[in-house]
Amino acid sequence: MEMIRTEQLMKKYQKNKQVGPVSVTVEEGALYTIIGAKNSGKSTVLNMLADITVPTGGDTFLFAEKGAFQSVKNSVGMLPADPGFYEDYTPVKQLQFFSRISGVKADKNRIHKVLDAVGLGDVKKVRTGRLLPAQKRRLGLAQAIIHDPVLILLDEPTAGLNERDRTDVRKMIEQWHEAGKTIVMTTDDLEEAEALSTHLAVMHEGSVAVEGSLAELKQRFASSFSVKMKLSSEMSQYEHRKIEEALTLLNKSEERDGRYLTVHVASEEEIPKVLMVFLSNNVKIYEVTVRQDSLSDVFEGGLPYESTDETPTRAT
């Protein structure tokens, strides 16, 4: 089932700044990540879906109904970027209020269960104004799921958190996804996006530059492999030079780190050819690790903004 579809969704700001037009589709059960640098427009897209930002053009279809957000709000949960809480409320009261206005009467057990799940079990009765920023982020996640929505929108859920909190939040997102929720999130961390997502959309200067399932994007951009070898410590300069020459002939790049040498190849078929170069030169190999490059490896110099039809350039 189609959970979200946007058609030419757009927000025009003053001074010629614009986000969109954005046309994307999110299927049921997907963990769809919108990734992009700061001010690329990813939060604006999410906010337009959630009625926080009013679009200046285009259409939104939620649960296959055009502009149906008002009627489906109870099925959607959202963590906006830097949300404001009622500082005089405790987390328990906060969740009571938000579940009430969602039209769901969450009992105390449910509220306590959700607060425990997001790691706020110890501060249930502390005023929200006294919570730490990371605890507020956790409370934001709690309010997003208190009414058990089927679609969850998360705007930079791990931004500004320390490593422990980031790991916790990622685990929560994975659990919700495994429980069948459809999740749309934004992030500027490609590694995080790749680890969690089933689908990715890369935004640049207000537009979607690249979109597709993680498998499609990997096939398109990250079909290369890294072959990491542990070589003899007694290799002579002559042997080194011969290897370099042979790899240059094969048009392969290499990285050296002490005894380790990594060679990048474009396809699986090229791995034996590379190994043959070493063996035919009588170079002893003590260890070989072959790894398919991740999107993070491929785009470490920048996301693929230029064109949806261009593959990123990288010597292999």
Binding site: A50, K73, G77, P80, D82, P83, F98, Q143
Partner: peptide
């Protein structure tokens, strides 16, 4: 300004 509306508008109509 306090962004508390954000958590309300995602739940009920303006």
């Amino acid at each position: 300004a306090a962004r508390t509306f954000r958590l309300v508008v995602i739940r009920i109509p303006r």
